Amino acid sequence: MNQRNAAPHIHLIGQGVISSLIATHALLAQRPFTQYVRTQRTAPTMYWLSGENYALPTATVLNHAVAGTKRMSGIIIIPTKAYQVANVLTDLQNLIADDAVLVLLHNGLGTHETAQALFPKHTIYAATTSMAGYAFTTTTDTLTCIQHTAWGQTQIGNIQNARSANDSTQDNTLSYLSTIIPELHHKTSILEALYTKLAVNAVINPLTAIHNIKNGRLADSEYMMTMQAITQEIVMLAKHKNLSLSYTQIWNIVLGIVHATGDNYSSMHQDITHGRRTEVDFINGFVVREAQKIGLNVPENEKLLKHIHILEERL
């Protein structure tokens, strides 16, 4: 994949916030890209953080993505909800070329094994990002708009190499991705970054959803002990996975995110508010399942998982 000689096509599954943020970066960088949806819809208008507005191209319906024997080649980025990933990967099985590269970009953990099982010969990356935005509709119509709210950093690492891949191929892929994803940082141990993000999500998302509060309220003393216990459980799990995570470091990151996003509502809070399924099974649920495998007690994560499930049943 040589950036100078041939620009690989970027395939973005879904047209949600993260997909559309990356699509806008690709648009501005003049990189070829396509977004894919299950049903046809009007493309969103992007309200960029710097003040400009951009209209994204109409997305392609995934079932119609490939005509004849031609398959999707290039870089396929999957920035969907975690619970959608397995279905997306199944849909892609007969649609992508042997040289395609997969990038999983979502909250939570538990999908990597599915990707590796379905695509054992492909290069697969996992990534986590702090770039952000939110979807809304204007008061004058029902067209979807997306407000960009943070540039953020994205951490990415390899979880599976294609048999034909080499260091040069990986360097070219990451170099090209850095032209459409700002502040892209390669991690040789991506699992440490993913577990760090898991801790942040496992603390902030369910507590703000359960108590119906903005992120910043978690800085109140009444939530401190619960937050610390959730964090400690995830650090213990990470240590059982031979990951070098420091409780103090993770706790400081959690508190930093609470303060930095103090005026925001978490994604899980918004899912519950708008009657949508949450990603709790891939956040606190992942912690509970992995802990059960090794006989580790994680009572705080179990409580949060059960509580969110109760809220979901009421939707």
Rank of each mutant, 00 (worst) to 15 (best):
M1A: 12
N5T: 13
H9C: 07
H11N: 10
I13N: 07
G14W: 09
V17D: 07
I18F: 09
I18L: 11
L28F: 07
F33Q: 09
R38F: 05
Q40P: 05
A43I: 04
T45D: 01
Y47L: 15
W48T: 09
L49P: 04
N53I: 04
A55T: 13
A55I: 05
T60G: 03
A67G: 01
M72H: 05
I75F: 07
I76H: 04
Q84H: 08
V88W: 07
L89G: 00
T90Q: 14
A97Q: 04
L104Y: 02
L105I: 07
L109V: 01
L109E: 01
L109N: 05
H112P: 00
A117L: 13
T123E: 01
A126Y: 03
S130H: 02
Y134F: 15
T138K: 11
T140D: 14
T144A: 11
Q147C: 09
T149C: 03
A150S: 13
W151E: 14
G152N: 03
Q153M: 00
T154S: 10
Q155M: 07
G157Y: 02
N161T: 08
N166V: 03
T169C: 10
T169K: 04
Q170V: 13
D171N: 14
N172T: 06
S175L: 13
Y176N: 13
L177K: 03
L184A: 06
H186Q: 12
S189Q: 15
L191F: 14
L191M: 14
L198M: 00
A209M: 03
H211Y: 15
N215T: 06
G216S: 03
R217F: 08
L218Q: 07
M224A: 15
M225C: 10
Q228W: 01
A229R: 11
I234P: 10
A238I: 05
H240R: 12
K241E: 15
N242Y: 09
Y247S: 07
V254F: 04
V258Y: 01
Y265C: 08
M268T: 03
M268F: 04
F282H: 10
I283P: 05
F286S: 00
V287F: 10
R289E: 14
R289I: 05
Q292R: 12
G295P: 11
N297D: 15
E300G: 02
E302I: 10
I310Y: 13
R314H: 12
L315I: 15
